[in-house]
Design a protein around this nucleic acid. Structure first.
Lengths: 120, 120
DNA sequence: ATAAACCTTTAACCATGGTTGAAGGTCAAG
DNA sequence: CTTGACCTTCAACCATGGTTAAAGGTTTAT
């Protein structure tokens, strides 16, 4: 498929696809004779993974860190596992921070609803 | 106090203080004859509020939204509460997503450790 | 054959949240 | 009176995550 179709099926704009490619999140695709990019199906799920990860608050460089270099490489086991375990650790860290944030905001709400209860 | 001292007591750089001022988060301070900014104590807690709010994940425009225009004014309760409740909702949403991602990554690790167990 | 719809690259622009530097004024100490 | 530590403004720069425009080539349909 060409870039326009990939954009359509993934909901990611063509400019963004090229942006991701230039920043190393997507591999350099094959080209047609005329220079048009040609994509395989593998790229669709990779792009979706990027989109989901972004929505979860991961930066592009974080995403780059845990995606395999080659979207066809499902199994570079040791690398992938250590990358994923690393990522899991980061997720747990982020969860902890977010939970602390929730606690703080929650307390701020309580305070503002009843300022007499406690000083902040 | 002058800007340097304010920076020292709040831990916020002078450039950042001027940046906040130019972006409406801090009111235009009085000036000495020579043009130097002069701050009162009230600005210290406002700056600290900004710092804490930022740490809680609020953007500068969100913070601007719930800080009173005049740092001597008491923050309007209803505004703050609804802003905070909104933020709490966003945090809960993000927590949910992050927990889902944790689950996914966790499963990916299990898969890569034992590829025969299940297809992904 | 010509328009539209597609593709290419490079460069500039946008917002966010600042920092850094240049060019200069002011103030206190030696 | 000069040095250093402050202060001023304004403009440029940085990273992040893109979009938009310019200038052009290709493909498809009428």
């Amino acid at each position: 498929m060409k870039i326009g179709e990939l954009a359509k099926v993934t909901g990611v704009s063509t400019s963004r696809i090229r942006f991701y490619e230039s920043h190393g999140l997507l591999p350099m695709p094959l080209r047609q004779e005329n220079g048009y990019r040609v994509y395989s199906e593998a790229i669709v799920s990779r792009l979706k993974t990027i989109t989901v990860s972004k929505a979860l608050g991961f930066s592009l460089s974080e995403i780059q860190g845990f995606l395999p270099d080659d979207p066809n490489d499902v199994i570079q086991r040791s690398d992938v596992v250590s990358n994923l375990e690393n990522k899991l650790h980061q997720i747990d860290q982020k969860l902890k921070e977010l939970q602390e944030m929730r606690e703080n905001v929650s307390q701020m709400i309580a305070y503002h609803k009843d300022p007499n209860s406690k000083k902040c």
